[in-house]
Design a protein around this nucleic acid. Structure first.
Lengths: 122, 122
DNA sequence: AGCTCATATGAACATTTGTTCATATATTTT
DNA sequence: AAAATATATGAACAAATGTTCATATGAGCT
């Protein structure tokens, strides 16, 4: 019953890689197929440097893989695990935001959303 | 092309909720079953305030759900989507760290690790 | 050889995030 | 009623993170 530390750190790194809008835009593009840095940079309208930094982050946790062709570097989603995680996460947030919307008719507040409280103010 | 902004923000929030060691410890405990705040606080040896803050984060993205019983609040994993995502992520990082280890046998302790590979730690 | 193109990386800065402490709210008990 | 218990939340500060700018590496071309 070992030390869970390494597992925790690796999970942390993995999820953290996916917890940024730019990196999510990258992986969503990569779900459509392999792309090199320029293509990503152009599609997202963001600098090459920024894209490269984010790709380094996605590489480090094994979310994407690399194929070099001459001076081009093509990136793609690492494996089916990652694809599954992404598609399930998309399903989850889609369902969850629907459930939020149906509640927000009542609470016009933004930000915290619904926070599952049936604690009526008496 | 539809506006992907809301989807991106929700994915970002969701993954970000899972990208912290303490919150991961919480959800891993919750995978074993429903627990209230004190139980989580005691199991992890961390303050009630800290656990509550992190639970708020996990609630806001729909990763956990809540059941109030008197003055106790029981938390559990929100649904099978989230359970699946967690178990696949665990599989992914397990495989990935194995593949890293098998490469590090070659690069002995000292040098820069593997060449232009995806081994990069910051 | 030089030059250009594609990508990677380091440093600096501004923003964000996690943790702690103090306090608020809600429920039960005395 | 007050006190005790369980949880939530706000403010403040340290640490981590994303972005930009400048520069480095490396491959193809003339």
């Amino acid at each position: 019953m070992g030390n869970k530390e390494p597992l925790l750190s690796e999970l942390e790194n993995f999820f953290q890689a996916l917890s940024d809008k730019t990196r999510l835009e990258i992986v969503l593009l990569l779900l459509e197929g392999e792309k090199n840095v320029q293509e990503l940079s152009a599609s997202l309208g963001k600098s090459q440097s920024l894209i490269s930094h984010h790709l380094a982050c996605l590489r480090n946790c094994g979310a994407v893989k690399v194929r070099k062709v001459g001076k081009f570097v093509y990136y793609s989603i690492a494996d089916d695990h990652v694809k599954d995680i992404l598609s399930r996460a998309i399903d989850h947030v889609s369902e969850y935001s629907k459930s939020i919307l149906s509640c927000e008719i009542v609470s016009q507040e933004k930000g915290q959303g619904v926070k599952a409280e049936q604690t009526e103010t008496r």
